[in-house]
């Protein structure tokens, strides 16, 4: 029972982690808490729905297409909604991200309606049993892809010129410009990467939770809680925070009371904010 709850928590936790990565990236490069992260997940899920279900494109092709579409939308949104506010005050930018999220959500609601769309299982949903332990292949994939992406992102930020320049630009835009780094391009790239990561998170949960315009709201907030939990400056922290949150939720549901699941997630976040404001991982990348 305990182990089973842990395994369930791990899968949903890595989805939270992927969303948290988006918050971390946006915080790093834009110094803004970007509350439209959950809607990036929603858009990603819709793209996969459009390509795979509506246009009947094979999943192996639909995935890269949906990722490309996510990247393109990220680019357009950055140009229209984020770029104009680069120099604005922090609170204005924060509000702008909330506004962008609401706009995107309602746009999708107008286009697709408020009803959920079913999504076929990609990874198989019939459980495999190892003695009494039940493992759903889908969850295995979600966890695996989540971790793989986090590791890739970390390598990108630590090992590549672009990644390092991205971090440098995030820490000091003016000085980064003095190094010859094109700061605005770097910020655009960050936004696109964050949008794609969010989009992939959305694609991963599409078969689990269906696809609908509002699907990003709660999951986006959970991602935020995970980012705060792990440390808003840390890639590792984002994943750790996501996993802890996912497991805590499941344990709370299993052993305390399922009515308080969400409350426990946010209580955990508030506790961390009080006692360790820099998060579990602090400032280590």
């Amino acid at each position: 029972m305990l182990l089973q709850q842990l395994i369930q928590g791990l899968a949903i936790g890595s989805v939270y982690g992927l969303l948290a990565l988006g918050y971390v990236l946006m915080w790093q490069a834009w110094a803004v808490l970007d509350f439209a992260r959950g809607d990036a997940a929603m858009m990603g899920a819709f793209f996969l729905l459009i390509f795979n279900v509506f246009l009947k494109i094979h999943i192996l092709l639909a995935f890269p297409l949906a990722i490309a579409a996510s990247a393109l939308t990220g680019f357009i949104i950055e140009r229209l909604a984020y770029r104009p506010l680069v120099g604005a005050r922090e609170i204005n930018r924060l509000i702008a991200t909330i506004g962008a999220g609401i706009l995107i959500r309602n746009l999708y609601r107008v286009m697709f309606g408020a009803d959920p769309f079913p999504f076929p299982t990609i990874f198989g949903e019939h459980p495999i049993y190892i003695k009494h332990l039940m493992i759903v292949p889908q969850n295995l994939w979600i966890t695996g892809i989540g971790f793989a992406l986090a590791i890739l992102l970390r390598l990108f930020l630590l090992k590549t010129w672009r990644g390092k320049a991205m971090r440098a630009a995030a820490q000091d835009r003016e000085t980064a410009a003095l190094m010859g780094i094109r700061v605005k391009n770097s910020m655009t790239l960050t936004f696109v990467v964050a949008t794609v990561l969010g989009g992939i998170a959305g694609m991963l949960i599409a078969p689990l939770y269906f696809v609908m315009a509002d699907m990003g709201v709660l999951i986006g907030l959970k991602g935020f809680a995970a980012a705060v939990l792990g440390g808003i400056e840390s890639v590792t922290g984002a994943m750790v925070g996501g996993i802890i949150l996912g497991i805590a939720e499941n344990l709370a549901g299993g052993f305390i009371s399922s009515g308080y699941q969400t409350a426990i997630a946010f209580a955990l976040m508030i506790l961390v904010l009080i006692f360790r404001p820099s998060g579990i991982m602090g400032r280590r990348l």
Binding site: M1, Q5, I12, G254, S258
Partner: peptide, 20 residues
């Protein structure tokens, strides 16, 4: 007797408990 949020997506904790 298990509750869930009206907008909850992940019901696995409740279902596992019921199964158990």
């Amino acid at each position: 007797v298990e509750a869930f949020n009206p907008d909850a997506k992940d019901m696995s904790a409740q279902i596992l408990k019921i199964k158990n």
